[in-house]
Design a protein around this nucleic acid. Structure first.
Lengths: 206, 206
DNA sequence: CTAAGTTCATACTAGTTGGTATGTGACTTG
DNA sequence: CAAGTCACATACCAACTAGTATGAACTTAG
């Protein structure tokens, strides 16, 4: 297999990844195309060959990279988990120290973008809201499965708790990022784990 | 009392308030000085007479306006509350529909600024982290008072829960803003109220 | 081979931004 | 009343931004 100098897919991927990092670090509007290009060695001509404008580049980052991250960390593991509470706790406890450190330095890519762009661009807003809804929905669906299988109390509202769970995590990351201190996030995580235990069906807790 | 055309305090206050609104709507970096000035009728010469640069204007907005908001909504009410759990629930239930609507359109000024500026400017980061810490601390302190007065279980960590509480609220506002739908925030709030009830000392729950 | 379409490269532009240099009228103070 | 300080006003600039116009090089079809 010959690697061409002009490789559509590879160039596009390099642009997406450089854009993702620049956006994660500086925010979308402050991430300048010139700096993204300087980091990739790709030129402006190539960029505008692949994306019709800056917004479309950002949309692609959300639709592809950010979506995949959410899917890998939350959607797939939750859909596989037998006991949803064990599954969620396992994901939370599975955060490595590097994850915590990195996540708390720059924050959550999804939440960062949502906070910045939702009020000013409907294209971003719809996409990011869709990702939040996927995440909430995955938690809710797992809890519903848990209710059917007898692991989870029947008198709780899975959708409401999906929302609460995502809120607690995003809020914890926000504070940790502002404090530049992963302890704050660890506190939130531990309190959330305690809270999740209260959702177990009493009989199955023994 | 004569109102001078040249009134230091009034001009400064007008600049601060216009800056606050522009920042709340667009973020700090996207809030252009020219647009702030256009909204106030104040000129650039006056602006730079009052603030040495754009960052100092932003710092003053945080130190004065945002600080006051946190103080009015959380610090003072919590310090007055006899039963901390009742106090927190009362604040949460006291949100009017307009508050919810407005808060979910543009998000929380504190969190917006923290997300945008913490990673890129240490002056903002320190100030915003200070405000988060005040808020967390007020919740923790209220819970400690509740422990001493027998309203709150002794086997919980007030600091940890202060952190969790702030996280849940900020995360709820974030999601509501992205969804442009206050229901998401209402779900988080209601779940948080349920959670707070589990912190009561069993004997005093009856 | 040629021709055409794809993938990029270079040079440029118009608009916006934070910031400055300089001037001016009002108010205070000696 | 004169001098000086304060609170602005006006005009400007250098830097940076997203986006474009144009062309060149590479790949592929025939």
């Amino acid at each position: 297999m010959v690697v061409n100098k002009r490789n559509f897919d590879e160039t596009r991927q390099r642009l997406l990844e450089a854009a993702f990092h620049a956006i994660h670090r500086n925010g979308f509007r402050a991430a300048s195309l010139d700096s993204i290009l300087a980091n990739t060695g790709v030129t402006k001509g190539a960029l505008y060959h692949h994306f019709s404008n800056k917004n479309e580049l950002g949309y692609a980052v959300v639709d592809e990279l950010v979506h995949n991250m959410i899917s890998d960390v939350w959607l797939k593991p939750l859909s596989r988990a037998e006991d949803p509470i064990d599954g969620m706790v396992a994901i939370l406890k599975g955060y490595s120290d590097e994850d915590m450190e990195r996540g708390c330095k720059l924050g959550c890519p999804l939440n960062n973008l949502a906070q910045e762009m939702s009020p000013v661009d409907e294209g971003f807003r719809r996409r990011l809201d869709g990702l939040f809804a996927l995440w909430r929905g995955a938690v809710a669906e797992a809890l519903r499965r848990g209710q059917r299988s007898g692991h989870v109390r029947g008198n709780i509202d899975p959708d409401q708790i999906g929302c609460f769970f995502v809120a607690g995590m995003e809020g914890g990351i926000s504070q940790a990022k502002t404090a530049q201190n992963p302890e704050v996030l660890a506190d939130c995580r531990d309190t959330m784990i305690d809270y999740l235990q209260t959702l177990r069906k009493p009989e199955s807790a023994a």
